[in-house]
Nucleic acid binder design. Structure first.
Length: 496
RNA sequence: GGCCCGUUGGUCAAGCGGUCAAGACAUCGCCCUUUCACGGCGAAGACAGGAGUUCGAUUCUCCUACGGGUCACCA
């Protein structure tokens, strides 16, 4: 028996940005296809002429390329089932709609927008929901003559799906199982709009069939329209694909409630996340786990590991809250795992922006930064003290655990200064040995000397790296200058 | 409001009739240590509630509560 080829598709409408929910859908579609040796297809759904956004399709290409979700067929690379842009397939849908009219699974509707609007208002007012399915099916039972008359008069029309008035429809979903609804709940939804364009619901079904899509993977916001899809497939006599509905991604509101992830929760598009300093690998890894868990229960996974580990039965039904803390952790994991040169390359723009043409040991800076940042965007704030010594309070010299005071700090700074001045070879090892030797000679704890030195040369309470590293980076001359400034600050303060 | 879906620690989640109910993030403590990180060790913290079914329910069924989705000539 020939096994049917797995074909999934990502069918975004070009809105100009990639919401993480969409990205996760694309990822799962890709993973399902690739984990079963199938094909992943990109199809652009741009049937809404009023919402066209310039350059929006490019955003989709760019995003997918950046995260290594590579499509096998699509508008830019073609394929055997093109075109892959719905606006280029327009002539295709109408005949299918008419076929359905002929099969009496659809009908012409001549209702005006105004009538439908007032209908909706009165319906929402009515407590009894006289026509629960939204539309009152006014045009459903027109006679053949009436219809051909109106068509002959060029009356604008739409085509609606003719839902069964009784009975039930059951459909199966790979994650939600079997779901049954009463047919009288189903609206006679619009298939073809008055401009001749198909609606999303209709184009989707037609295209998925024509493109031989085996798995329809989409957000659970479409779950309640799934029965209508089933009925459409049945009306055409087409094979129904496997539905895989994905739970929503939610965000936590300041007041503790949750709702669909949106702007007010923070960065919600792929672009936002990149701007906030997240790596594509971290983003992909994190969102892969938002609603799915591998059997082995491991967390850090590359794309190829995701492909080999992915399976539909690991997808969960309940919605997940987007957790920026966890994303940050993934990001830090990926940052720490980078070869130092890669880290350096990514950090370089921040160094250059901050330091201009100052000569500093970037490699050393990268070494101290790599284990400490969760996002590259944190770099400037963390090391700006290297560029310029901030004005700081002498209180910084007081540290309980190090047992340092202003007085002790002043004393130690004065004592260590000659050693620093006379240090010939300014290497990290030498600097380290010199300071440690000082502590041993004076029979003091390392902190007694390290703390005042680090404070004097940094001017901040918390620094990435310690006194030794910072001295190394700053260089001898600047270090001496800063220590002298520290001595002066303390002397003035203590009124010497 | 009708219909549909969901509900294991603060968050992501494992579990698929018998477990002292995994693990990760976050939190807290200890160790390492010249601050901060990294790393190591440890602590606290959960099956929404109620009925059934069963020798036995987190797991199966029903009800309630709460949360979410959906009700367009948008996708």
């Amino acid at each position: 028996m020939a096994v049917k080829e797995v074909r999934t598709r990502f069918a975004p409408s070009p809105t100009g940005f990639m919401h993480v929910g969409n990205l996760r859908t694309a990822l799962y579609e890709y993973l399902i296809a690739k984990s079963q040796g199938g094909k992943f297809i990109l199809r652009i759904e741009d049937t809404d002429q009023e919402r066209l956004v310039e350059g929006a399709t490019q955003v989709i290409y760019d995003t997918l390329a950046k995260v290594s979700i590579i499509h096998d067929e699509g508008p830019d690379i073609g394929g055997p089932f093109g075109p892959y842009v719905q606006s280029e397939r327009l002539s295709l849908y109408k005949p299918y709609a008419i076929e359905l009219v002929e099969k009496e699974h659809a009908y012409y509707c001549f209702c005006t927008k105004e009538r439908l609007d007032s209908l909706r208002i009165s319906n929402s007012d009515a407590e009894d929901n006289s026509f629960p399915a939204g539309y009152d099916r006014h045009c459903r039972d027109f006679s053949k003559d009436e219809i051909s008359n109106k068509l002959a008069m060029n009356s604008p029309y739409i085509i609606r799906q003719k839902m069964p008035l009784s009975g039930k429809t059951t459909f199966n979903d790979a994650v939600y199982g079997s779901i049954t609804v009463d047919n009288d709940e189903l609206e006679d939804q619009v298939l073809l709009k008055s401009d001749g364009f198909p609606t999303y619901n209709f184009a989707n079904v037609v295209d998925d069939h024509l493109m031989k899509i085996s798995h329809v993977i989409r957000g659970s916001e479409y779950l309640s329209s799934a029965p209508k899809y089933n009925l459409l497939y049945e009306a055409f006599g087409w094979e129904i694909p496997l539905y895989v509905h994905l739970s929503l991604i939610q965000g936590k509101n300041p007041d503790g409630t949750v709702s669909k992830l949106s702007k007010r929760h923070g960065a919600t598009s792929f672009e936002d996340l990149l701007n906030d300093g997240y790596l594509t690998e971290a983003i992909i890894n994190y969102i892969a786990l938002l609603g799915w868990c591998p059997k082995e229960n491991i967390e850090v996974m590359s794309m190829s590991e995701l492909i080999s580990l992915f399976s539909i039965d690991g997808i969960s039904k309940s919605p997940a809250i987007f957790d920026y803390d966890k994303l940050r952790w993934f990001n830090a994991e990926y940052i720490r795992a980078m070869p130092i040169l890669d880290f350096q390359n990514r950090a370089l723009p921040y160094y250059k922006e901050l330091f201009g043409d100052m000569l500093l040991d970037y490699e050393k800076i990268s070494e101290i930064l790599q284990p400490r940042i969760t996002q590259f965007t944190q770099i400037p704030a963390m090391i700006s003290f290297l560029k310029e010594l901030p004005t700081y309070s002498s209180e910084f010299y007081i540290h309980k655990k190090m047992k340092t005071t202003k007085e002790s700090s002043l004393e130690k700074l004065k004592e260590i200064l000659p050693n620093i001045v006379s240090l010939a070879d300014w290497s990290q090892q030498n600097i380290h040995d010199m300071l440690i030797k000082f502590a041993i000679d004076k029979e003091i704890k390392n902190g007694q000397i390290m703390w005042p030195v680090r404070t004097a040369i940094s001017g901040v309470e918390v620094t990435p790296g310690g006194a030794v590293e910072i001295l190394t980076i700053l260089g001898k001359e600047e270090s001496i200058r800063r220590i002298n400034m520290g001595i002066k600050l303390l002397e003035d303060e203590l009124e010497y």
